[in-house]
Simulated scan of single mutants.
Amino acid sequence: MEALRLWTEGSAWFSNESGKKGLIKEGCYADFIVPSADYFSVEEEEIKDIVSLLTVVGGKIVYGDRIFKSLAPQELQASPEWSPVNFFGGYQAVHPVKEPLPWETSVTS
């Protein structure tokens, strides 16, 4: 629990944004994710495999995958055009999300 608090509230402190970031409360930025697994119930070695299925920044959806893909904006191509990400994928290709997630159902916009 302490590690998660340091990752959220602590990061806000480093960017001089305490009270605006790192908490889910009125007056804070509306930035959050829906993780692919429950951080508090997975084995410690599996924490590194958790990825975002939905990312909201400033109250707007900026990324969606799997059941949230229909809500996501069009993905941008990596630049420059010859970037390996365009051919092999980004970090998410290294640790694929395990199939299926028990709570998954179709989500529509």
Results as ranks from 00 to 15, higher is better:
S83E: 04
L23Y: 05
S109Q: 11
L23I: 03
G19D: 05
T105D: 12
E45T: 09
V42E: 02
N16R: 13
S18M: 11
K20S: 10
Y29Q: 03
T55G: 00
G59F: 03
V97Q: 03
A30N: 10
P80C: 01
A72M: 03
G22S: 07
V42A: 04
V34C: 04
G22P: 01
P96D: 06
S106Y: 07
W7I: 02
S18W: 08
F32V: 02
D31W: 02
A93C: 13
S70F: 01
V57Q: 10
P100Q: 14
D38Q: 14
M1F: 13
S11H: 09
D31C: 07
D31E: 06
S18I: 01
R66G: 09
S79W: 14
S106F: 01
E44I: 11
A3K: 15
V51A: 04
G64L: 01
L71C: 14
T8C: 13
E44V: 14
W7P: 02
R5P: 00
P80I: 07
S36R: 05
K20A: 09
G10N: 04
S106C: 12
P80W: 03
L23E: 01
V57K: 11
V34W: 04
K25E: 15
V34N: 00
F68D: 00
L76M: 06
Y39V: 05
L23H: 08
K21H: 14
V51I: 07
K69F: 01
Y29T: 04
P96T: 08
V97N: 02
G27H: 06
D65C: 12
A78Y: 02
S18L: 15
S36G: 05
T8M: 02
K48W: 07
L54T: 01
T108V: 12
Y91R: 09
F88D: 03
I33D: 00
I47M: 08
A12P: 00
I67Q: 07
L4I: 14
G89W: 10
G90W: 11
E44K: 13
E44F: 15
F68H: 00
W82L: 08
N16T: 10
S41F: 03
V62M: 11
S41V: 07
A3Y: 01
K60Q: 08
E81C: 03
N86Q: 10
L4C: 11
S36E: 02
R5Q: 15
D49I: 00
F40L: 09
P102C: 04
A37S: 08
D38K: 12
Y29E: 15
T105L: 12
E45A: 13
P100D: 05
G10V: 02
G27C: 11
A72G: 04
K69S: 15
L101M: 11
P73V: 05
W103K: 09
Q77R: 15
T105N: 13
K21M: 11
P35G: 04
D38M: 08
E2H: 06
G58K: 05
N86H: 10
V94H: 08
Q92G: 09
F14C: 15
E104S: 13
Y91F: 06
K48S: 15
P80F: 04
T55S: 12
D65N: 12
S70Y: 03
E75R: 14
